[in-house]
Design a protein around this nucleic acid. Sequence first.
DNA 1: GCAGATACGGAGGCATCCTCCGTTTTTCAA
DNA 2: TTGAAAAACGGAGGATGCCTCCGTATCTGC
Lengths: 213, 213
Amino acid sequence: MPKAKALDEKIAGKKTSGRAADKKPSRKPRADAARNRERVLEAARTVFGAGAADASLEAVARTAGVGIGTLYRHFPTREALFEAVYRNEAEQMATLAKRLEREAKPIDALHQWMHSFVRFVATKKGMVGALALVVSKDSALFSYSSDLLTRAIDELRTRAVNAGEIRDDISAEDLLHTLVAICYAHDHSGWQESALRLVDVFVDGLRKRRAIR
Amino acid sequence: MPKAKALDEKIAGKKTSGRAADKKPSRKPRADAARNRERVLEAARTVFGAGAADASLEAVARTAGVGIGTLYRHFPTREALFEAVYRNEAEQMATLAKRLEREAKPIDALHQWMHSFVRFVATKKGMVGALALVVSKDSALFSYSSDLLTRAIDELRTRAVNAGEIRDDISAEDLLHTLVAICYAHDHSGWQESALRLVDVFVDGLRKRRAIR
DNA sequence: GCAGATACGGAGGCATCCTCCGTTTTTCAA
DNA sequence: TTGAAAAACGGAGGATGCCTCCGTATCTGC
């Protein structure tokens, strides 16, 4: 299972921020570098948070009061920047999954998690665009956050499948993909209600039940 | 119902290509203009058909052997070009809806139509990108094709609702949006099977059923 | 305080978007 | 047939964005 392996390495590497992996004593990171990184992140949160996930990176750099080169050094791609900006959010969703797993019945946990996801996204305008990028590119394979979310939903899914409550032929990736898709590009007022309803429909469809005849 | 009105005007205008609307005797369209329009369309079909919905418009113009200015004169926006390229496809889907309405039971008609949509999209690589644009922008309001699809699915939906087979609180827009979303950004091999399964789940969720107690 | 390591930043090459306008082609009426 | 006006052509050019590269500035450990 090469994919999971790569993921674990990635998480380990990121979490500890380069623990003496192999052959690098490496002095501590420079103060100005850390400062600038924070500035860029802050600017990105501001700019993307305004809903413009496609804002130019130059605008972000300008907002941060930093050269474009500096931005690219810290975040080589737009995805990397999104990743850093929304990592926190993904972690919150993962934590929520753990909690729901303890506190709710399998299918309810899944259902509630998906609802929370929609509501969460609703408060973070930029996140939709970020998620779209994450889902649409194969970069999903390289995204810490996206894997976090996939794992979270997969735990909920597996539990519900094992309890015999939902069908077993829909993958976690498909679930997440659908969830993001439901949130995506709904910009009119009232989209949140639509999205929540669509989640209801979808979860209902996942249920194993007998149809009225 | 201002939206529908605007739509009708649009259809009429396009269909008859400017029938003496009000005060324009207007000479007949120039031959070279018509020829170039066709060339651009053909080139666009080729380029987008190869799956590159984000190809540069300059590339399309080059392929068509036409200046970039000419392309923009005929199709002021990328969406307008998509619209023209895939208008035909949308009409086919609309026709299919009519047929299914005669030949299948309400919910089956809806289900089959959605399946056909997925399969259809699978054969037209560029179409996914086009649909994404159409759905994501509010340009949906100004799109002939998108309205055609919305109307088609709405007829199927309404019929199924009236037959008491599906819930009545999901709009045609939501259905179409979800359908497109399910197709969107699935690029790995085997996406078609995933997508068809997701459609099954979704339609199942639309059903009015009694839960297992 | 110094030297080397590290980071900065923006100029510059490239691509795309889209507009504007001088030139060319077509149409129509005389 | 012809010539002038209308219509369309096409591409140069200004604007913006992406990303890289490298001369310069700053920091850190000694």
